[in-house]
Design a protein around this nucleic acid. Structure first.
Length: 724
DNA sequence: ATGATGATATTTTTT
DNA sequence: ATATCATCAT
């Protein structure tokens, strides 16, 4: 066997990882060190050299994009189509299992997947139904609570209220939510994972079957696994499976949504024979950029420890620009972009990174003025658009009448005379009789409603029945086409004057073409093409903005930049309070995560990195003054070149490392020492920390997080805060 | 049923 | 500043 194509292009560490014996392996792969390459080559090595059957290989990623890339790279490296290779996201694979074993998993065959938006709506409705005060139990927080529990593998019955009434209510809402989902055959994202985990946990035979089948488990972005995902992997690995996990503890930036870097340590405890391989040679950035990144991340404790290096050149210094305000910052960035483009470079090779989406606006305005094409990442994706979700709701009802989430969404869209009052009556009936809205509607239309309302409701029920009947024999795209027309959605949006309505109609038509080009992968008995299309829509929300091919400057948050690289990178808004974000600075864990995010940002740059900050920034309609980000001061001075240093700047750019952390200063109260992070004492509320300030003079208010009294807004003039 | 008005919050995002 | 959301009036 000629192993040249598999090993030739690898360095020693990469080769060590790829050819590791069939034992648990943990690869710590620094930014730009060839992480994906190692995974792909490992797969090829196992199949081609070790003679492992493609059937016994399972590869897990976090995003569909990563899964698709991995699949295509494995296929091109092996030069054979590996159709039956199980490569997918955790959610995709869990979904596949649940479709196959819906009975054992306790699900209806045609269960539907709801996305976070559906989930939130469902929770809002539930709160209303139960007449729960949604200012004390905020829908978003309830949603977070439920997902958090599920991510930890906990169902409502496992939870204890610890005598806390607020928590007790949360738990009971969780329970209600479970009931509604079960009744409607609805499965949210976290539920996919939880069910798949329980499926194996509670079915020894089934688990044994999959353990026998999947010997080699390849996991990407391992630092981002949450508890349930890790538990699932461990179950599957059992005593005989060989997990091969790749991750970077320094790039863990999703703790806030359940990811736990600690799994990297846990892994070594759970699999004591683990071989650890570190990939530290970087093929992306200049030495200067890497040294800066290394220096910044060195300020974090609890790391595995890793130092990126390169054989490449030193490169240019990192340019730091102190802007006067956010407009000046944008002007500066655009000036440099102009130079870049004038020198014949691709616009698409330049990226502007920022901490929060709100920052894109000023930059966008500048780009528009300068007539530089750009593309903003993120935002609504195709299958998340309201009109698309409306159409999908009709399709879902056609497939499953008990889907309350869809029922409520479209029962009166377009308006057909079913008002809030009527819906309220149906909800009450549904609740009293523990049945779906659909059945409630059928049951009460005859008596409890006025004849006009009853007619409207019956007309809706008939419409759905008719749509289902009329399209039963049609293929997928015709079903969709039929649905958007006969539901009245097309006409409804056509009436919307202006461009908005037009785009909506276009999007609906686009949905038909999406259905046309959709290729079902499952057998008809396993799952109908319609159900598969609906699952696909939920699981893979599609691209944000189209026209990715056009040569334009890339704008995105540092989070969405993870995994990407650009010759020219701007990191904007590098100010304390913005980045690191105010909400993270109080908590050391939060601050370390911000620092990892900064590390991610820096390591996106291949050749040139600009860091900009503004002394004054208009945020939430309020001007505030800010210190340069403490992260800038963590970059060794020898790597930095200040652009056009401004003499009138009174504050030093670099704060000595030993000095207390820099803090955001606010015009108001600055003279009396009111600063973010400042500890204060209040006569009634006790001790606390200042989180936020706003306003000036007599109207100035501060937000204080009191240790015992929670977070409060206080008017500075009256609060009589004592500095501590 | 639709639009105006006012209150409220405003990190990060995938599945 | 601004976007979203609930409430209220029409």
């Amino acid at each position: 066997m000629d192993v040249t194509p598999i090993l030739d292009s690898l360095n020693d560490a990469q080769r060590q990882a790829v050819t590791a014996p069939a034992e648990p392996t943990l690869v710590i792969a620094g930014a730009g060190s060839g992480k994906t390459r190692v995974l792909v080559h490992r797969a090829a090595w196992l199949i081609d050299v070790e003679g492992v059957s493609p059937q016994s290989l399972l590869a897990v990623t976090f995003t569909n994009k990563a899964a698709a890339e991995m699949r295509s790279r494995v296929e091109s490296l092996l030069n054979i189509p590996v159709n039956h290779l199980w490569i997918g996201t955790f959610h995709g694979l869990a979904h596949r299992l649940l479709r196959r074993h819906w009975r054992e998993a306790g699900l209806p065959q045609n269960f539907q997947i709801i996305d976070s938006d559906d989930q939130l709506r469902l929770i809002k409705r539930l709160l209303k139904n139960l007449e729960v005060d949604d200012s004390r139990w905020v829908p978003r927080e309830v949603q977070y609570f439920i997902n958090e529990q599920k991510d930890e593998g906990l169902r409502s019955k496992h939870l204890d209220d610890d005598g806390d009434p607020h928590r007790r209510q949360m738990i009971s809402l969780y329970k209600e939510y479970e009931i509604i989902c079960d009744r409607g055959g609805l499965v949210d994202f976290a539920e996919l994972l939880l069910r798949a985990h329980e499926l194996w946990r509670d079915n020894a035979e089934l688990l044994a079957h999959y353990q026998r089948r999947f010997k080699h488990l390849l996991v990407d972005e391992f630092q981002d696994t949450n508890a349930i995902q890790y538990g699932w992997l461990r179950l599957l690995a059992g005593k005989t499976g060989v997990p091969f996990v790749v991750g970077d503890d320094d790039q863990s930036i999703y703790r806030w949504r359940g990811a736990r870097v600690e799994h990297i340590h846990q892994f070594q405890r759970d699999f004591p024979k683990t071989t650890v391989v570190k990939l530290e040679q970087n093929y992306r950035s200049t030495a200067t950029i890497l040294n800066a990144a290394n220096a910044v991340i060195a300020n974090n404790s609890s790391r595995m420890g890793k130092n990126l290096w390169t054989e490449g050149a030193e490169g240019e210094a990192i340019r730091v620009y102190s802007a006067y305000n956010e407009r000046d910052e944008a002007d500066f960035v655009i000036g440099r972009l102009r130079d870049w483009i004038d020198q014949g470079n691709l616009r698409a090779d330049a990226a502007i990174l920022y901490r929060s989406n709100a920052q894109s606006r000023v930059l966008e305005e500048g780009l528009i003025n300068a007539r530089i094409p750009y593309r903003v990442y993120g935002g609504l994706r195709f299958f998340e658009r309201a009109e698309i979700k409306d159409a999908l709701a009709y399709l879902r009802l056609m497939s499953n009448r008990d889907d309350d989430s869809s029922f409520e969404r479209v029962v009166n869209k377009p308006t057909r005379g079913i008002g809030a009052r009527t819906i309220e009556i149906m909800r009450q009936y549904a609740r009293a009789n523990s049945c779906s809205m659909w059945r409630a509607a059928g049951a009460i239309a005859s008596d409890e409603l006025s004849s006009r309302a009853a007619n409207a409701v019956l007309a809706f029920l008939n419409l759905i029945e008719r749509m289902a009947r009329d399209t039963a024999e049609l293929d997928l795209q015709d079903k969709v086409d039929h649905a958007i027309h006969s539901s009245g959605l097309i006409d409804f949006f056509k009436k919307d004057k202006g461009e908005k309505g037009e785009t909506r109609v276009e999007n609906l038509l686009e949905l038909v073409s999406a259905a046309k080009s959709f290729e079902p992968g499952m057998s008809e008995e396993e799952m109908s093409p319609l159900d598969e299309f609906l699952s696909h829509a939920a699981l893979e929300a599609g691209e944000g903005q189209a026209s990715a091919w056009e040569d334009c400057v890339q704008l995105m948050t540092m989070h969405s930049a993870k995994g990407l690289e650009f010759p020219l990178v701007f990191m904007c808004g590098m100010e304390d309070g913005l980045f690191p974000h105010q909400r993270s600075v109080a908590d050391p864990n939060g601050l370390e995560e911000e620092r990892r995010l900064c590390y991610v940002g820096i390591t996106r740059a291949k050749e040139t990195l600009y860091i900009t900050h503004a002394e004054q920034r208009r945020l939430h309609g309020m001007d505030s003054f800010a210190q340069p980000s403490r992260f800038i001061a963590e970059i060794p001075a020898e790597h930095i070149e200040e652009v056009r240093p401004r003499v009138q700047v009174s504050r030093p750019l670099h704060t000595p490392r030993s000095s207390p952390v820099t803090r955001t200063m606010v015009t108001t109260g600055a003279e009396m020492g009111i600063r973010l992070g400042q500890r204060v004492r209040h006569g009634k509320f006790g001790d606390g920390v200042i989180l936020n300030c706003e306003g000036q003079g007599a109207h100035a208010r501060v937000e204080v997080n009191f240790e015992n009294a929670g977070t409060k807004w206080l008017v500075l003039n009256y609060a009589n805060l004592e500095l501590m």
